[in-house]
Simulated assay, not measured.
Amino acid sequence: MQKTPFKHMFAAFMAGSVVVGSLMFASDQLNVFSGGIAAATPAATPATTAAAVQTASATASSQASASLAAVKAGNASVSDIAKAASPAVVKIETVVQSAGSRSFTGSQEGSGIGSGFIFDASGYILTNEHVVDGASQIQVYVQGYDKPFTATLLGSSYDLDLAVLKIEGGQAFPTLALGSSENAQAGDWVVAIGNPYDFDYTVTAGVLSAKEREISIDDSQGTRNYKHLIQTDTSINPGNSGGPLLNMNGEVIGINTAVSSEAQGIGFAIPAETVSSVIDKLKNNESIPKQASPYIGVSVQDVTEDMQADLQLNEAAGVVVMSVQRQSPAFQAGVRQYDVITAVNGSKISNTEALTKQIQAAQVGDTLSLTINRAGKTQNISVKVNDKNAAN
């Protein structure tokens, strides 16, 4: 078999993270996630004045509570939910200057599109942190108003991927109530409202597929480790990020956040319980304690057949260590670049996702037994799991 050099791939991996592919944020931040679809709305304009606020349509005013009799009675249809909730769902457009931008290159500025919803009548809006990350200007479109509002970012959390914005108006805005997903069950109907691919206020419906899902998504700042997520088959696309996932009582039980780009009908939402626990801190721009993030300090890649001979393996299985953070648990335990991890605590490791799950399932302070192949020889190395947040 012809040997294929793979050491040049080292620079492509971030130290200290485990790469998990096939997921993308369901936002159109900087036109990256949508494949370059540009915003079809007019250019950003200044904040709506008090006079402009008074031009809000009677329809928006009459639905200030974002509720209908059918919803209150508990026998609502998807159409009822959509009519009741839509006035409180907003479209978010961001402008990000290219200077110092993490994601956008090639022009002076980029634009992004996302969703959110008003949860307080005085103009407080909830969305995803990645929708507004790096924005130099945030414009919010509210149904029934002639002009967009310029929003202020009050507080955000990278780890939880949540942010609270504030817009100022001359009257009460329609709102949506945060509910609970604790009693929701797989198979329950849910409704999503957002702005996918700049198609304003799109309604989709489906079922709650599962709860307590965990995923990890890498970006240039690090790795977001989402926990307790709601999985749904409701159609979620770039631009839906930050929009509400509603139950059939019209309550927000989740914040639409991510979607699998390699599957159909696999979307994820941050549960309302997570939001409720931090929303006051976000409103007041208070720091949110970081949850422990188990890590061992390696970047890895799936072993391929092209690597098999170079790594002196009998089969193309396991994950190859591309880098090891200095002074990390793995480094101190003796794990080195190009070691191949084939098992953790006796359980076979077939790919990077399997290794990530094993590490994330561990508690800080636990010891993992890694079975590795180094230059054709097998050995076991004990690695103590550390907290990545504390290490940073």
Rank of each mutant, 00 (worst) to 15 (best):
K3N: 12
V18F: 02
S22W: 09
S27Y: 08
L30T: 07
N31Q: 14
S34Q: 05
I37M: 12
A38T: 11
A44I: 15
P46S: 09
T49K: 03
V53H: 09
V53L: 08
S57D: 11
A66D: 10
V71T: 01
A73F: 14
G74F: 11
I81G: 02
A88R: 04
V90P: 01
T94R: 00
S98M: 04
S122L: 03
I125R: 00
E129Y: 14
E129Q: 15
I138T: 03
Y141F: 07
K147W: 10
F149W: 06
L154E: 05
Y158S: 09
V164Y: 03
T175Q: 09
G179A: 08
G187Q: 07
D188H: 08
V191S: 06
A192E: 10
A192M: 13
G194V: 04
P196Q: 06
P196Y: 05
P196N: 03
T204E: 07
L208E: 01
E214R: 11
S216I: 10
S220T: 13
Q231C: 03
I236R: 00
P238H: 01
S260N: 15
I266H: 04
I270C: 05
P271H: 03
Q291V: 11
Q291N: 12
S293H: 12
S293N: 13
M307P: 08
Q312F: 10
Q327E: 11
A330K: 06
G334W: 06
I349N: 01
T371D: 15
R374G: 06
R374C: 08
K384H: 09
A390V: 12
